[in-house]
């Protein structure tokens, strides 16, 4: 369910860009961070086979995130306003690299990158949320995108509990980062459920 929600979020994002011929309201910085997240985590595509499903999803997430970046940078460039997308990503990249160096399952390059990508994914939404807060409102379709994206990691949580009891497996790095990631959406979810899903416009209180 988490993966499908993630998949759906990207389909909604592409649908929004296509139908409005615009990437207004979408943070380029957040999208660029996702490319970095997928490239650093899914490098194992080349040596660690899990399943056809796993491989297909990895390829899709890398390809679609690069494609979104292309759409924003070239095809719909005039519709992107960098002056409201001002979050400093350095504040995220540095700490995530440090977290990757401290918390990892083996002190080797690919494992550090994996951990880095997990932490970075947890906070990659911040430029987007920061932008949302600056503009104070969003198109409904954009909020559906964010809701699906936020729900994705939240839906992993029951699965982690299931695996803890069922398979006796726990991945503390993914769990802690996943909880942080989900937590960052709580404010957004509150407004989404109380306004957008009640048919009102997404507007933040002044």
């Amino acid at each position: 369910a988490g993966d499908i929600s993630h998949l759906a979020s990207i389909v909604i994002l592409l649908h929004k860009i296509y139908t409005s011929h615009s990437c207004r309201g979408i943070s380029f910085k957040t999208q660029a961070l996702y490319v970095l997240v997928f490239l650093t985590r899914y490098l194992d595509l080349f040596w660690h086979w899990v399943s056809l499903y796993n491989t297909a999803m990895k390829v899709f997430f890398i390809a679609s995130s690069v494609y979104v970046l292309y759409l924003m940078k070239y095809k719909y460039r005039p519709t992107h306003d960098p002056s409201i997308d001002t979050f400093k990503v350095e504040y995220l990249l540095g700490p995530c690299l440090i977290l990757g160096l401290i918390f990892n399952y083996e002190f080797k390059f690919t494992e550090i990158l994996w951990s880095f990508s997990i932490w970075l994914e947890a906070v990659a939404i911040l430029p987007q949320l920061f932008m949302l807060q600056r503009t104070g409102e969003a198109e409904a379709i954009t909020t559906h995108y964010l809701a699906a994206l936020g729900a994705y990691r939240a839906l992993y949580i029951p699965n982690w509990i299931w695996r803890y009891f069922g398979d006796n497996v726990v991945d503390p790095i993914a769990v802690v980062a996943g909880l942080v990631q989900t937590g960052l959406y709580l404010d957004f979810f509150y407004v989404y459920f109380t306004k957008v899903l009640q048919g009102q416009k997404f507007e933040l209180p002044a």
Binding site: V50, W114, D171
Partner: peptide, 10 residues
Amino acid sequence: DDLPVFHDEL
């Protein structure tokens, strides 16, 4: 496969 954890999630 001797990965310390599963890494089988996305």
